[in-house]
Design a binder for these strands. Structure first.
Length: 376
DNA sequence: TCTGGGGTCCTAGGACCC
DNA sequence: TCTGGGGTCCTAGGACCC
């Protein structure tokens, strides 16, 4: 802690801890819903995702029994089957999950007016003005868990801490059906024994770099001088260093304001190789339709159009083009996509594995502009 | 060995302007 | 022949998350 006094960077910009945040993550959400709907699946190693017939695709969610075999989300179905040949697979009903998710979020709303949905199975609640201390926050979490189980027969893991990232980390340390509370002065002590990968944003690549520098746990990182953390691990390294040393890395203002959407995209993998460029054209048209409709629904104009193309050897390219002004027209997207596609036209259609279209540089249309766009 | 889809954020290089 | 420096925007790629 004494080190912090030598660092003007910290003393000037430090955010103080003045919040109590609860993070809720549903346990193996998709798999749990499937088991709830069909109790004969209970206790089995189960994965949701992929195609049970072709055995293609990836694991979306898996039951805790499947996790014991080393299976995890994102893993290819074929690899999951190698790890557990008697694995049970279900395709999944994403409409149902989304309905259940809405119900869960409605339950959460009763516990705090300030809430941030972070996915269909997770959310943050700001309890700062709802409870007077951590003891009360914990009691509230117990009630919430009971409430959720009573109405939806689902369990969740909860973390309570003075900011969002710490609340999330807390919830990760006791799954499933856990409840972990960490108070401001206990943060560094709590994080020290945990693996550095517990921190959101530290994935495979960063983990490798940390390991090469003998940083395995959060405590290992906390021990090194901050200058070294910056030198070796860059900006994120410095931010992580602050986190593991118990500083608040989150701005307490606007901590729950929802962020604007930055891009809208759709991408599709051809499970049957495209016969000719006509197949490709059909897919592109359908993606353009989806994303432009979404943009219209949200009253969004866009300026940048991106094409993504992946070949059978997994070589992936993105090409983008920005227009001089914001538009909302299928025709213009199509023209740009065709232009961007030109570069790849010497390839055979069957060499293409995936195609994606993205619009970004989004701009909310005001009512005035809406009337204007109708003329064009 | 096999690798979905919808996102966000970061980095790095190049063009361009003053 | 020698060519600064800061800022901004655009583009491509990649890490990461759920």
């Amino acid at each position: 802690m004494a080190l912090a006094n030598q660092i003007p960077y910290f003393s000037e910009k430090e955010h103080t801890f003045d919040s109590i945040i609860l993070y809720m993550d549903l346990d193996a959400f998709f798999a749990s819903v499937e088991i709830r709907e069909n109790p004969t699946l209970a206790g089995l190693p189960l994965v949701v995702g992929g195609d049970p017939n072709t055995k293609q695709g990836v694991v979306s969610t898996c039951s805790y029994e499947a996790r014991e075999f080393g299976i995890h989300s994102g893993m290819s179905i074929s690899q999951a089957l190698r790890l557990c040949p008697h694995l049970t697979m279900v395709r999944g009903s994403f409409r149902l999950y989304s309905e259940v998710s809405k119900k869960i979020m409605n339950i959460l709303k009763h516990y705090s007016p300030t809430m941030k949905v972070a996915g269909n199975d997770e959310a943050y609640l700001d309890l700062t003005d709802v409870v007077s201390d951590y003891k009360e926050a914990k009691q509230l979490a117990i009630e919430l868990k009971d409430d959720m189980y009573a109405s939806e027969k689902l369990t969740c893991s909860i973390g309570i801490a003075p900011n969002k990232i710490l609340a999330k980390i807390c919830s990760e340390t006791d799954k499933p059906n856990g409840l972990v509370v960490v108070k401001p002065l206990k943060i560094a002590e709590f994080l020290a024994p945990l693996k550095i990968t517990i921190i959101p944003g530290i994935g495979k690549k960063s983990c490798k770099i940390f390991h090469e520098n003998n940083v395995i746990t959060c405590g290992d990182l906390a021990m090194i001088p901050y200058q070294l953390a910056y030198q070796k691990f860059g900006k994120t390294g410095l931010k992580t260093w602050k986190l593991v040393n118990g500083y608040n890395t989150e701005n307490t203002e606007n901590k729950f304001t929802s962020k604007e959407v930055k891009s809208i995209s759709e991408e599709r993998t051809f499970f049957n190789r495209p016969k000719d460029w006509k197949d490709i054209d059909i897919l592109i048209d359908s993606s353009i339709e989806t994303i432009v409709t979404k943009a219209k629904k949200n009253n969004m104009n866009f300026r940048t159009i991106t094409l993504k193309i992946r070949f059978q050897d997994f070589e992936t390219y993105t090409r983008s083009h920005s227009l001089s002004c914001h538009v909302i027209s299928r025709k213009q997207v199509k023209e740009v996509v065709n232009m961007l596609l030109e570069e790849f036209k010497d390839k055979k259609s069957y060499q293409i594995r995936l195609l994606g279209v993205k619009i970004s540089n989004l701009l909310k249309i005001t009512d005035n502009q809406k009337t204007l766009t109708q003329f064009f």
